[in-house]
Design a protein around this nucleic acid. Structure first.
Lengths: 252, 252
DNA sequence: AAGTGGTCTAGACCACGTC
DNA sequence: ACGTGGTCTAGACCACTTT
């Protein structure tokens, strides 16, 4: 009992991928509906005359894609698309701007070495008066100011500030260049806010313009904070888009 | 040549998982640094006296976790943590509120059947005057208004509006209940904005308070729009948090 | 030619759920 | 007792990279 019309064993395309696409299509077209059981692994193995391990590889891909779920001792079932979750995925400003077909450019407003005051010392988890590096940067898209960032790193290495850092700046690069340890983790918090006076001037907008406010903290492997940053970006120019569910390619 | 001190073959814990954790730890502690090559699959297989397929399973987990990458014909290498990407992952309001230890509750301001005007018809991709269902809901956390949602769905089924829908409302549930087709995809756009008069009153804040504005569109399997919604949530009460890199559990 | 990861096989035993 | 998915083995051949 076998069916070669679906799976071509002589094809260059891996068998597991062919089977994955076959089942994916069955789900997409509604032939298999949420809650329905898939054929058992043995059944698929026999039907297409392929080994069970190969079937399992295909099912693993479906599980990873969130389209099916398995239950030990029971079977494999079609999942309901989870549409109530939202995932906003964005890259650094430079890549995001380029991706939209615009030209990124950044202007360094200020860079200096300072001694940490109480507030900064707390943010970086260091002692007061520790030497720190301060950066103020404005990021432009096609000549228009889009974001305003303030960054701090501990300045332990006395490394000179390189031109290259100013060209495509990101907090983690900054942290990597001026720290003894390797940045491995980051935490970012996004809030809705509006500009105050200084920020309005820098971004060239009216005071009170809606903005996103993002606080970033970068950690090394020992969970020590090695950098802290605040980014403000214009709500009228920047949107976060999220696609959820199956085969979201079509609506992008 | 084998080493049983790392991998315990008699343990209940799967071998591939033990190996995964072992390598993960080597990377985490810096014993293996970004760019370093992992031992070859054959080498790991012989060293721990386990089959190559099991070694591959462990490596697959590391690849999925973004900690290593493979190159055909060359080897497997430790990846650099990508810290410039941001992923904001949030559930529906009810789950988010519960997760923060607060009590969610929603109040239905209005629900009625309307005929689509031009603007709504365009948003839902339907003809003008098509019958639609309108929902206006305020969502509370511990008695304090947090979000204000306006939702529209095409009203083809004449399904009665159930009490259960009002208890834990979400746009996709609404769409599922009042549409002939199954919601399988959604698009959400997040913007920074501020309240206007009506929204300020409903949320009990001053006009001009910073808010997140989220536009949701729900599609069925044929990419027809079956629901559209606008959600406004308070910027002073709601934050989006994102963790990136390796082992972000520790800093949560 | 030798070594690497990518795919695939045909078995095996296990824990779990159902009957 | 039986069927299910979860793990594991000891081979095999392939495409690719390096020597």
């Amino acid at each position: 009992m076998q069916d070669e019309t679906i799976v071509d064993k002589s094809s260059i395309i891996p068998i597991y991928y062919q089977l994955f696409k076959y089942v994916e299509n069955q789900i997409r077209t509604g032939e298999l509906k949420p809650g329905d059981a898939l054929p058992t692994e043995m059944e698929l193995s026999e039907r297409f005359d392929i080994s069970r391990m190969t079937v399992r590889r295909a099912i693993l891909e479906l599980v990873t894609a969130g389209m099916v779920y398995t239950q030990k001792g029971k079977g494999t079932f079609v999942a309901k698309p989870r549409l109530d979750n939202v995932v906003f995925d964005l890259n650094n400003f430079y890549d995001e701007i380029r991706q939209k077909g615009m030209k990124p450019y950044s202007e360094l407003l200020e860079t200096k070495i300072i001694k940490a005051d109480e507030k900064l010392a707390k943010r970086l988890g260091i002692a007061v008066d520790t030497r720190c590096l301060l950066f103020r940067v404005v990021i432009f898209a096609d000549g228009e100011p889009l974001a305003y960032e303030t960054r701090y790193t501990v300045y332990t290495k006395s490394t000179p500030i390189l031109e290259s850092e100013l060209k495509d700046p990101s907090l983690s690069n900054l942290a990597a260049a001026h720290s003894d340890t390797v940045p491995t983790r980051s935490k970012k918090v996004l809030m809705a806010s509006h500009t105050i006076n200084e920020e309005s001037k820098v971004l060239g907008v009216k005071p009170g313009t809606p903005v996103f406010l993002m606080i970033q903290t970068i950690y090394d492997g020992d969970n020590h904070i090695i950098a802290w940053g605040k980014a403000i970006f214009r709500g009228d120019r920047y949107k976060l888009v999220s696609y959820e569910g199956w085969n979201t390619e079509d609506i992008k």
